[in-house]
């Protein structure tokens, strides 16, 4: 009998603590499948900063370290400078990357650091319980904005991919979503390219992954997918913002 699908050895055989319907599981698997397929699993070091996904090191079968809130790009820079022949990635949420770690991600991109960032954008703080993030949409309710985000008070949501695409050192920037099987396949392709860019030493790469947070959105897993499609994608358009010729 031919095996058509199996659990990737990039994931450890444990049950995750993520909420039902959370897309972290899909994103984890995509990253790990790419590392397995590229033969990089044994040569990779991952960085998991504060956020729900700090526990990703329990699930991903690679050497990993935790980092303080927002500092993963600085930590990854230090690792990559120490180990120029290894593969390094950060796996960061939007509260972490777009808010407290905005300085670190911009300057890692600016230096063209040779690591890959998987940026999970679910438009809210998950681990701390649903507070407003820089990426929270106008009108979207959060525990620090119970009437919904207002432009006059909190400004417009921050578009990280568009911002980073203006930086020369960020040679690969793509926004993907995990709401449909077709989009999941596209997400994997983008992650694969981002790691290729690192392997080729071309510069910094980031894949922004539009994700769901049913618990803090107050929606069912299925409704969350619909909400992502109807609300997030119009404001955060999917697609590639920067890609070097070598990996097109």
């Amino acid at each position: 009998m031919k095996t058509v699908f199996e659990y990737t050895r990039g994931m450890r055989p444990v049950t995750t603590t993520y909420c039902p319907g959370c897309t972290h599981g899909i994103a984890h698997r995509l990253v790990m499948e790419v590392l397995v397929e590229k033969g990089l699993l044994g040569d990779t070091i991952g960085v998991s900063p504060i956020g729900c996904s700090i526990l990703s090191h329990d699930y991903m079968n690679v050497d990993m370290c935790e980092s303080a809130h927002g500092r993963a790009p600085a930590v990854a820079s230090g690792i990559r400078r120490a180990l120029p022949n290894k593969t390094v990635f950060t796996y960061q949420g939007d509260g972490d990357l777009a808010s407290i770690g905005a300085g670190e991600i911009i300057h890692a991109a600016h230096r063209g650091e040779l690591f890959t960032t998987i940026f999970i954008n679910n438009a809210i703080y998950g681990m701390t319980g649903g507070q407003m993030a820089p990426t929270t949409l106008i009108g979207q309710k959060s525990t620090t904005g119970v009437d919904g985000r207002k432009k006059e008070i909190s400004g417009m949501p921050l578009r990280i991919s568009e911002l980073l695409a203006t930086i020369d050192g960020a040679v690969f920037v793509e926004r993907v979503a995990l709401n449909t099987p077709a989009n999941v396949r596209k997400a994997k392709k983008a992650i694969e390219k981002a790691f290729t860019v690192q392997q080729m030493g071309l510069g910094f790469g980031l894949v922004e992954v539009l994700s769901t947070c049913p618990t803090n959105w107050g929606l069912s897993p299925v409704d969350s997918m619909t909400w992502l499609e109807e609300n997030m994608i119009p404001y955060y358009p999917l697609g590639n913002f920067r890609c070097p010729e070598e990996v097109k």
Binding site: V47, S67, A68, R80
Partner: peptide, 10 residues
């Protein structure tokens, strides 16, 4: 802040 976190990474 970045320097000390780079140091940790290194």
């Amino acid at each position: 802040l970045a320097a000390v976190n780079m140091a940790y990474g290194g």
